[in-house]
């Protein structure tokens, strides 16, 4: 099984240890912010834990929150593994959501059972098409995909906002009209919001892990990411593989949008993504580009977010505390990376 251990993961448990250490450090640092305003940080963190794991509903909410983050982090990982930065998974997520909702309330005569799969495929394709633009600009014309993907995020949000407020407006809430019930993703545990897209995300992680470690395509992709000259020397079709990877990365983010629409909201609300794409980048980096670890770390970050809601209700501490904690965490991650590079 371990035949294809990738170089960054010399020690298999290292990502988790590192992540745990960084979380503790960021909690300690955030605690320094709480102390002067007379709040016991230990009590606050206890409330976060309670909010995240205190009930079945809390745990399922963690998973609900983790689902899109898993998919966007996989999207980042897939692109990064072949040497490209995908900072546009948020935009690709929006495109996936737009495609889902467009198909979900228009139907186009699709029979009931075919509707959900069609919506998923459309979401994947829309995300992939959105990612294909920066991919082509990079691979053919050398434009930085970092910049193009970021810019296209704004474009995607703007398109969604336009659709929500204009042609697809429902007239009541700042959201589009709802999709038809045949397009709802099945709920896994009744009474909760946990839906089948969670399984899609887990499957995607498993598939990506397998593809990267065991297949010819994954081998080529990793070679290109590690040493593009060696890949060319070995006759690999570098541009083609990079394009496919980047498009698939967009598709994965598109699936996150699909899940949010078909599994949670059943329409496209304004401000669908609270930055799932960017959280995905953090998760990908913390997981050291390993898809399996991405699932675990996405869950941890989701629990932190969900738990902070509980903390706010119980203690009146604003949720933004968690934003501070996450920001500190990101800074710590980046600085550890730099230290490692220097070592």
């Amino acid at each position: 099984m371990n035949a294809h251990v990738d170089a960054p993961a010399v020690n298999r448990w290292r990502p988790l240890g590192l992540a745990a250490g960084l979380v503790v450090a960021s909690m300690a640092l955030t605690g320094l912010v709480l102390l002067p305003i007379g709040i016991n940080p230990i009590a606050a963190y206890a409330q976060i834990l309670k909010g995240a794991f205190g009930s079945v509903n809390a745990v399922t909410e963690d998973l609900v929150y983790a689902t899109p983050i898993i998919l966007t982090s996989l999207s980042v990982i897939l692109a990064f593994r072949c040497g490209l930065w995908n900072l546009g998974s948020d935009g690709q997520l929006y495109l996936g959501a737009i495609a889902t909702v467009g198909l979900g309330f228009n139907r186009f005569g699709l029979p009931g059972p075919a509707l959900l799969p069609a919506m998923a495929v459309a979401a994947f394709a829309a995300g992939a098409a959105w990612a294909a633009v920066p991919a082509v600009l990079r691979l053919r014309f050398g434009a930085s995909e970092v910049i193009v993907t970021i810019m296209m995020n704004f474009l995607a949000v703007t398109i969604a906002t336009y659709l929500v407020g204009g042609p697809w407006a429902s007239g009541i809430t700042p959201a589009t009209a709802p999709i038809v019930p045949e397009g709802f993703l099945p709920v896994l545990i009744s009474g909760t919001r946990l839906n089948a897209n969670f399984l899609v995300a887990i499957a995607a992680a498993a598939i990506l892990s397998f593809v990267l470690r065991r297949t010819v395509f994954g081998y080529r992709l990793r070679t290109i990411g590690q040493n593009v000259d060696a890949a060319r020397y070995a006759g690999m079709p570098v541009t083609k593989i990079r394009f496919l990877s980047f498009a698939c990365a967009g598709g994965l983010a598109g699936l996150a949008g699909f899940g949010e629409v078909a599994g949670i909201y059943h329409n496209l609300p304004n401000g669908l993504s609270p930055g799932f794409g960017f959280t995905g980048i953090v998760v990908a980096l913390l997981a050291r580009l390993n898809p399996v670890w991405a699932v675990i770390i996405a869950f941890a970050l989701a629990a932190l977010n969900v738990g902070s809601g509980g903390m706010q209700r119980a203690m009146g501490i604003p949720v933004s505390l968690v934003s501070i904690m996450e920001a500190v965490l990101i800074l710590l991650v980046l600085s550890t990376r730099m230290l490692e590079r220097r070592a």
């Binding site: 010819v216 990793r222 040493n227 060696a230």
Partner: peptide
């Protein structure tokens, strides 16, 4: 170092660089 091997890959991964397909 530039063309012949991938320095961060294992020997197994480097052994099939050209013939992996």
């Amino acid at each position: 170092h530039r063309d012949g091997v991938v320095l961060d890959f294992s020997l197994t991964d480097n052994a099939i660089l050209v013939d992996h397909q």
